[in-house]
Design a protein around this nucleic acid. Structure first.
Length: 220
DNA sequence: GACCAGGCACATC
DNA sequence: GATGTGCATGGT
């Protein structure tokens, strides 16, 4: 049963790394900003950008909505792709103000499906970012898929090499209880394992999952 | 210096 | 529909 396999992996990773506690009490808005800033970017660089925003007393929807885009870009410089990301933050804020009066609380009561579709309609918010916002900012039981998730599960032969984002998401959501806390930790643990052992060029030695079958040797 | 990071949109075939 | 490319700082 896949459920058991998934839980075995979760338990091995949890035993090895401990609870990751992603975005603990950061607040909804900060989490949304972080989700956009971390696109294809090391979290340490994102933290610097978030701290810059805090220092400027600007980590606030109203402040960012009214801020000049170039000024915002300079504040988030350390997160990389700063011009692109400043635009994406602006796209999100413009959408929030035009449709929801700038109130994140207005989103919390929406159905997961509706909110996901609406987030995806914002340019710069793709599937992983939308799902990260749903899970980590709004506590919705949505499993976040990222590069590491695909890499780890393909390399272990748990899903076909050609599997796309939705197939991977379905693998988790269909075989695990809809448990926000479980999804939160599990995704973070997979990322942690990926950082250490599942680089594009494999470094499997010492990985908590090393003893599990690697049914594919193909690079992903 | 090479490689990598908690993606996404867009162009082109 | 698949594949390629630009975006960019900062750590290892």
């Amino acid at each position: 049963m896949l459920t058991n396999k998934l839980m075995q992996i979760h338990d091995l990773l949890l035993a090895a790394y401990g609870a990751q506690g992603w975005w603990p009490g950061s607040g909804c808005f900060e989490t949304v900003v972080g989700a956009i800033l971390t696109q294809n970017t090391n979290w340490a660089n994102v933290e610097k950008a978030i701290n810059k925003l805090k220092s400027a007393n600007a980590l606030d929807a109203d402040k960012l909505y009214n801020m000049d885009q170039d000024t915002l870009a300079q504040l988030i410089r350390s997160a990389g792709y700063y011009n692109i990301k400043a635009g994406r933050l602006k796209n999100f804020l413009n959408w929030l103000y035009e449709n929801y009066d700038g109130k994140l609380e207005a989103l919390a009561n929406m159905s997961v499906y509706s909110l996901r579709e609406e987030l995806l309609s914002v340019k710069g918010i793709g599937r992983e970012t939308a799902d990260s916002i749903l899970l980590y900012a709004f506590d919705k039981p949505v499993f976040v898929i990222d590069t590491y998730t695909a890499r780890v599960f393909i390399r272990h032969g748990l899903i076909e090499q050609e599997a796309d984002y939705e197939q991977l998401r379905d693998l988790f959501e269909s075989n695990l209880p809809a448990d926000t806390k479980l999804y939160n930790e599990f995704h973070a643990l997979i990322v942690q394992a990926g950082k250490k052992h599942c680089k594009p060029k494999p470094k499997c030695h010492g990985c908590p999952l090393e003893s599990l079958p690697h049914e594919t040797q193909q690079d992903y």
